[in-house]
């Protein structure tokens, strides 16, 4: 759906080129929720804005649905933008217009529908995001979560195939964030909408994304399925994000369990294996004793996972490892 071929971008500041995005190639498939995570200045915002050409690339090719967007003239570009919705961290709603008029704006600008058809579409969109009773209020009268839902309704007005989310939940509290992410996941399913979102929170990626790219210093340093990247991060930046998601402070060293006897393993369970009574069985059958040193059981989108750090003592250790391996548990021997 979205393809970047060697796209790069530099800003010209005082006669010098400041690189914002190094040569990047990327593929985002139709209907997937693709996350871009990075700290501020990592280039994720630039990358997102290259998709609807709010930023002009310095070089490379960007294909949207097979069409080279870098070759479009001004009017074709406006057509492309009408097929790409966008929501923002600070919502960017027009304070001077009612909720209904905000949602109607993209349709009015496109100028293709008569007023009555626009009204009907707006009513339907507000119904979808659960704001029908607020149609005649002004944005200032709404809560943050409601404002973002207006933003989503507005972005969907022209029935786009792609939705760009620019830190869409960063200004919201955790509960509202969960609701907005839920709504994004629903519309992704209902409309087969391709969603590209940028964030600096791994938790957002974990909850809604199918795939993720981690950005640092204007380049993608790691990408893949969210479960793979989240459970087995390779790049130091990715590791930091995962630690943040587990609420471990960056400065705080993780316990190396030096005083704990035995072999120390980290087990990663995915899917149904997470809930299987595996550890007890293995311990009984091989005679090893285990103690759980650290652990987390959660979900990545709908998939449950568990990650446990164990100390094993006594019994037949090799047999225990073999059993775990056979049960599709990812085992890392830490010591």
């Amino acid at each position: 759906m979205i393809q970047f071929d060697n796209v790069h971008k530099a800003y010209r500041v005082n006669g010098r080129d400041i690189p914002a995005l190094q040569a990047t190639s990327l593929q985002i498939g139709a209907g997937e929720i693709f996350g871009l995570i990075g700290h501020s200045g990592a280039g994720k915002s630039t990358l997102l804005r290259l998709i609807n050409r709010l930023e002009e690339p310095s070089g490379g090719r960007i294909l949207i649905d097979g069409e080279d967007s870098t070759a479009l003239d001004a009017s074709a570009l406006r057509g492309l933008r009408q097929r790409i919705g966008m929501i923002f961290q600070h919502f960017n709603l027009l304070a001077s217009k009612t909720v209904a008029d905000n949602v109607a704006l993209p349709l009015k600008l496109a100028g293709e529908l008569p007023r009555t058809a626009i009204d009907a579409r707006v009513a339907q969109l507000l119904e979808r995001v659960g704001l029908s009773e607020h149609a005649h209020k002004y944005p200032a009268q709404l809560s943050g979560g409601q404002k973002q839902r207006v933003g989503i309704a507005r972005a969907l007005a022209t029935e786009p195939k792609i939705l760009l989310c620019d830190e869409a939940t960063s200004a919201l509290d955790p509960q509202t964030t969960a609701q907005v992410l839920q709504l994004l996941a629903e519309i992704n399913r209902e409309l087969q909408l391709t969603i590209v979102l940028i964030t600096h929170e791994m938790d957002v990626i974990r909850r809604v994304c199918d795939r993720v790219a981690v950005m640092d210093g204007g380049a993608i340093v790691e990408q893949g399925a969210v479960a793979d990247v989240f459970l087995h991060p390779q790049h130091p930046t990715t590791r930091r994000f995962v630690l943040e998601a587990e609420h471990v402070d960056e400065g705080e060293q993780r316990d190396d369990f030096a005083h704990v006897p035995g072999r120390i393993l980290r087990l990663t369970f995915r899917g149904e294996a997470t809930y299987a009574p595996l550890l007890g069985q293995v311990a009984r059958d091989t005679g090893v004793d285990y103690s759980i040193l650290a652990g987390r059981i959660d979900r990545i989108r709908e998939t449950p996972y568990g990650q446990l750090t164990l100390a094993l003592t006594g019994g037949d250790l090799d047999a225990a490892l073999a059993r775990l391996d056979a049960a599709d548990v990812h085992v890392e021997v830490l010591r």
Partner: peptide
């Protein structure tokens, strides 16, 4: 500026941005 950016992202012409977003805001 976010208002201008949002209107641009909708595919508005500069004239439309001025008339439908800038002046009302």
């Amino acid at each position: 500026r976010g208002i201008i950016e949002a209107t641009q992202a909708m595919g508005a012409t500069t004239r439309q941005i001025v008339l439908n977003a800038l002046l009302p805001e």
